[in-house]
Amino acid sequence: MVDLRNTEADAATEGDTRKAGRMGALALWLTDDAPASRVQAQAGQAYAIARSFARNPLAMLGAFIVGLLIVVALFAPWLAPYSPVGQNLEMRLMPPSAEHWLGTDELGRDILSRIIHGARITLLIVVMVALISAPIGLLIGAVAGYFGGWVDRILMAITDVFLSLPKLIMALAFVAALGAGLQNAIIAIAITAWPAYARIARAETLTFRKSEFIAAVELQGASNLRIIGIHVLPLCMSSTIIRVTLDMAGIILTAAGLGFLGLGAQPPLPEWGAMISRGRSFILDQWWVATMPGFAIIIVSLGFCFLGDGLRDVLDPRQRDGR
């Protein structure tokens, strides 16, 4: 497998050089073996990453799905054919038709419009969870790895305790304590999500803790805060981004599960899990009410999985296959 990929990559590089002749000056500048400036080197690296990413069809599909989610969420009011909350009891529980592509629910609301608006909630949840848990995890991991000793031992002991607890159950218990609602669901999921990032950040930090550039900045008298913030954390970013992307599917599923139990976003918000829960009573006769939001969840989660897998293959070949 590894050998295979290498030959593929070699073949691709040769192809690139040949192609570069046809593609003109910009491509040549980007693929230059001896970049003249830092900007050129970075642009060239980005170009190489983008090229190898584009060769992976599943990764591209994932990027497309995630992009679609963002576009749909941003332009929901203009894309949705109907209002997500507008009731029409004469049209209740109508099967999919030309008028209502995915049918209507028990209050006559258009399911497609609700799914489109629900994309906003899903995007909000994943972005918020990532924005809360990734920095916490990164900071804890980087501090533990940088200082080592008892700081490391204590922080990692806490991390390991959280890591070895069942995530869904802990999220449930936290929501039970904090009260149902979208905001509390986000907090509860973030509390269970950070330990993985702490582990990664620590492992990354340990690999270059003893390297010369850190010693050089230390000798120049940089403070610990500065070293961690400016020199350590940026180097942990790529593996954290990969991990966050891979975790997104799990976060979406947990959020949908909380919504399904009535503990997440509250009605009439069109949260996908809550929509499935409402369709549960009609699953045998009006199957579309519960199944359609499920497809939305599956497509978006799969999109994040594909994207995460693709990013890992491109950015961090070492981590391939493990999870």
Binding site: L58, A249, G250, L253, A256, G257, F260, G273, I276, G279, R280, I283, L284, W287, A290, T291, G294, I297, I298, S301, L302, C305, F306, D309
Partner: peptide
């Protein structure tokens, strides 16, 4: 892909569809 589906399908949804 079958494996990735295992990470992407909500369990409760699959239960409902399975029952149906």
């Amino acid at each position: 892909v079958l494996g990735l589906l295992g990470y992407s399908v909500p369990a409760f949804w699959m239960g409902l569809v399975g029952l149906a």
